[in-house]
């Protein structure tokens, strides 16, 4: 893996004395979409802010494309675009002016053709002369994305891009994200929603209470941590679990129509064959069977639970 962002032993203690990040190590691959998943207050925004130079780290270092983000800040920041979590925009500027401002701020020469295309891609072009305060929340989110992309960054941070966004805009957003990835941009996004991470990311990092619990390829993560459940539907309801089945991790549903067998996909033998035979010997007749795989949501809940004291 070629890392475009490399984070080494990063910690942050705010002036209030609160430690928001604890010894975070993370390599972000060139061209990937990485989702940082974590509950409120986990430290996602803090991590992103340190990489972009908004917050200074207490210890540790960040390098972007091989350059240290403090001693070589001009080089690293020019490569990064940031869409903040809050809708922080001026009031009286027009869309066009604020996007031009961002481009210049990042040291790029005027390029009206590029900005026009950018606004068109984000369906903002017809609003280009509108004042920012007159825009809806979703529109403001688009403007923030336009500002972040105005200087053609190689790395894009999206801090909770779908907060307060409707289905339509979310679809648009994922299309934009995929298009950017196809053009070689590395994308890091934060989210509370597992489905989102599952839908868009290549890799997923789980962060809680300032600690990066794991970073894993999405598929590996699902596979490694996934528990599978075999659901057996019975022809006739059973009033209780036959004693001969007590040795298996089986659960009878309240209505007596379903048996749920939980097993680990990683173990050498799943015990399915034995279990099915045992069911047959117990005189229960099968109507149907299906397999359920735990979602990222379950994985996440498990992970977060594990670290709790």
């Amino acid at each position: 893996m070629q890392a475009i962002v490399s984070i080494k032993d990063l910690s942050k203690t705010y002036q209030s004395g609160f430690q928001a990040l604890k010894h975070v190590n993370l390599d972000i691959a060139d061209g990937e979409i990485l989702a940082l998943l974590g509950p409120n207050g986990a430290g996602k925004t803090t991590l992103i802010s340190i990489i972009s130079g908004i917050v200074t780290p207490s210890t540790g270092s960040v390098s972007v494309n091989g350059f240290d983000n403090i001693s070589d800040y001009r080089k690293t920041r020019a490569m990064i675009g940031l869409v903040p979590q809050e809708l922080t925009l001026g009031q009286f500027d027009t869309v066009w002016n604020t996007v031009s401002f961002s481009r210049g701020l990042f040291g790029r020469k005027k390029d009206n053709a590029y900005l026009e295309q950018l606004l068109k891609d984000l369906s903002l072009f017809d609003k280009k002369d509108a004042e920012l305060r007159a825009l809806s929340g979703g529109m403001k989110r688009r403007v923030l994305i336009a500002k972040a992309l105005s200087h053609e960054p190689k790395i894009l941070f999206l801090d909770e891009p779908t907060a307060g966004v409707d289905v339509e805009l979310r679809k648009d957003m994922w299309n934009i994200v995929r298009r950017l990835r196809d053009s070689g941009v590395t994308i890091i996004l934060t989210t509370h929603y597992i489905e989102e991470a599952e839908e868009i990311a290549d890799r997923i990092g789980v962060i809680n209470k300032g600690e990066l619990l794991l970073v894993e390829d999405k598929k590996t993560l699902m596979h490694n941590l996934g528990k599978k459940q075999l659901i057996v539907e019975l022809k006739q309801t059973a009033s209780h679990l036959p004693p001969s089945l007590a040795g298996y991790d089986l659960e009878l549903s309240n209505d007596g129509e379903q048996l749920t067998y939980t097993y680990d996909t990683m173990s050498d033998s799943t015990g399915i064959t034995d279990m099915l035979q045992a069911i047959q010997s117990a005189g229960l007749l099968l109507k149907d069977m299906h397999i359920k795989q735990s979602s990222l949501e379950d994985i996440f809940v498990d992970l977060v639970k594990e670290v709790k004291p």
Partner: peptide, 17 residues
């Protein structure tokens, strides 16, 4: 004003001394 509205984030994140 940018400090007040929060838009200062952009200046902090820009390659500017």
């Amino acid at each position: 004003f940018p400090k007040f509205t929060g838009t200062i984030y952009e200046i902090h994140s820009a390659p500017i001394s």
